[in-house]
């Protein structure tokens, strides 16, 4: 489980006080708040809404947003905010699963390629080239069509299409760090290549990989939402964010059916990207 090791080590380096640490910018605080809400929505949806995500009030179809229905209601009279809240779990957790797949497989490939070099590097390099050559979204579509239309398969497909990005970054980082004077110095201290890899290369590469993983989490939310939008995720009445937008587009007179879930997607991804950028900057 190299990916987990990296994540942990990356988190470790993050939490240690170092260098010029400035106070948290407001935008980053706000971003963290959005993410906390997204996680809470997923974990305890019933805390945030008293409506049912599946049963509508037929007397209140297509009600525009207001105090009673924050995001309005849909064509069956279901509360859109409730559907968004209940859709968080699969939207967020499938993106997380996708990132973990991409991170573990991709970083593993990059690590081996960068550290071992030679023919291993060439062979793995070609695999990464192939994955890069096929447009990520197209690859995800083909995989999900082969595996079957379910959100979990969409997550797997998204993860596979992210392997190349992680592989490339990890390889570049490993090669950069492998040549650093402090790695060489660890050989002079009597260390071997494996020790250099575990104790020096991984902790130092972990940070950039973590930054990418967070960025990729945002991308995965979008890709999975796009797959759901095309109908390649769990079918209704499930309420994946992308699926909500797709069903909303049938009712041009009720634009909130599109805008409300779309705004949630954008806010979440924007927050994730902001945090990733902030982490990249803070040393």
């Amino acid at each position: 489980m190299t990916g987990i090791v990296q994540l942990q080590t990356a988190l470790e380096t993050k939490s240690t006080p170092s260098g010029n640490r400035s106070s948290l910018p407001v935008s980053v605080l706000l971003s963290f708040a959005v993410i906390v809400f997204a996680v809470l929505f997923s974990a305890f949806p019933s805390l945030f809404t008293s409506h049912s995500p599946e049963l509508g009030d037929t007397s209140a179809k297509l009600v525009s947003p207001g105090l009673h229905h924050w995001f309005g209601t849909d064509y069956l009279g279901r509360d859109v905010f409730t559907r968004v809240v209940y859709g968080s779990l699969s939207s967020v957790s499938s993106a997380l699963a996708a990132v973990i797949i991409g991170l573990v497989v991709g970083s593993g490939i990059g690590l081996l390629a960068g550290f071992l070099g030679g023919w291993v590097d060439s062979a793995l390099g070609r695999i990464v080239d192939v994955l890069l050559a096929i447009p990520g979204f197209l690859l995800a579509v083909v995989i999900v069509s082969s595996l079957g239309f379910q959100t979990i398969n969409a997550a797997i497909a998204t993860g596979v299409s992210a392997i190349a990005v992680f592989g490339r970054l990890m390889r570049a980082e490993v090669i950069k760090i492998r040549g650093a004077a402090f790695v060489e110095s660890s050989f002079l201290s009597g260390g071997n290549r494996l020790q250099a890899l575990i104790f020096h290369v991984l902790p130092n590469a972990g940070r950039s990989v973590l930054v990418l993983a967070i960025l990729q989490f945002g991308t995965s939310i979008m890709v999975i939402a796009s797959l759901a939008f095309l109908g390649y995720g769990d079918p209704p009445p499930s309420s994946d964010w992308g699926l909500l937008v797709a069903s909303g587009k049938e009712y041009p007179t009720a634009p909130w059916l599109i805008y409300a879930p779309a705004a949630v997607i954008v806010a979440t991804v924007l927050s994730v990207n902001r945090i990733s950028r902030w982490l990249k900057k803070v040393r």
Binding site: S226, I258, L270
Partner: peptide
């Protein structure tokens, strides 16, 4: 950074909704 955070289908739907409808 903002452009990167908006899914393709949202952009399309917003453009259709605003400029089309």
């Amino acid at each position: 950074s903002f452009f990167l955070s908006v899914p393709n289908f949202v952009i399309g739907l917003v453009l259709i909704s605003v400029f089309g409808f």
